[in-house]
Amino acid sequence: MKVNFVFQQPNLPPLVELAISWFIFLFGATGPIVIILAFVGIRGFLHITRFESGEGILYKLSPLTKLIIVISTTVAVSLTIWWFGAILTLVFWSLFFTLNEAKRKVLYVSYLLLSSILGVSTGFAFYTPYSVLQMAFNTNTLNVIWVWPSYFSFAGYEPYLTLQALYYGFQITFRFTAPMLAGLLLILTTTPSDLMRYLAKVKFPLPFIFALTVAMRTVPRIFDTLDTVVKLQLMRGLGYGKPSFLRPFYVLIAGLYGLVPTLIFLMKGAKYTAIAADTRAFNSTPRRTYMKEVKYTKADYVAWGLIVVLFVTVALLLAFGYGRGIPYVGY
């Protein structure tokens, strides 16, 4: 179907337009990462990816319940209208206030959320075909707010950036943010051993459980090591004499430099982990036993009740026409 474009882009000198286009082009790719590096930092990730004991409600839930919450959230946001995902994002964001050292974690996770919104929004807005926008918004009229240089199409850009495309990208964001925050809450409030025990109870394959357990232990080490490598490169003069506003870019470059040494360092550790596990009979019997019993508390029953409520809500939204649209916007 033919698209009617309504041009509303600002009237600027061609050179300025070109400069802005290139700025957006570069910002679209690196901007969200730069935001994370500037405000969260690599060490910040350490604080939002490792378990620390606490007393809040989430620490009382069994890992299995939390895993079911993550999966249910993923299902719910993929089936329903975008604002339901936004509400769930808000719910999970507010649950960070119940964690140990909440202030710092809420701050970091807020930056992570902001960069995710920017990253996903721009990631979708620049590339989504007009036909999809027509279907999603049930209109043939699209409001053009920016015209890209024609050669940007080689990078997969649509010729025009439309208001609808931005709106579409923003809506899509919440399909990612809600499960992301739920997943982080699971990692922050669950010990690897607990996760192992509960997953084994529901017959999850042992090698997968072990991989997950080791990953939960390794992820904070990755950030810790990468942080050291990045700082070492900065200390060696990377970004020396450059203005301070460019610092996050140099952290990004140092991070890229540091990927290989970090991986080699971690691989060496992984070899010892594998030997340590195998020399202690890991995966030797199909029926692994557990010293501690798997227990469900009142909090788990309440959480399961809430999961049922979530699915009932999803069913109601679908019934009242608030399911996902084509392909992702509900109308």
Binding site: D194, G269, Y272, T273, A276
Partner: peptide, 8 residues
């Protein structure tokens, strides 16, 4: 450090 996989 690389031999330990559990929390407690």
């Amino acid at each position: 450090e690389s031999q330990v996989v559990n929390y407690l």
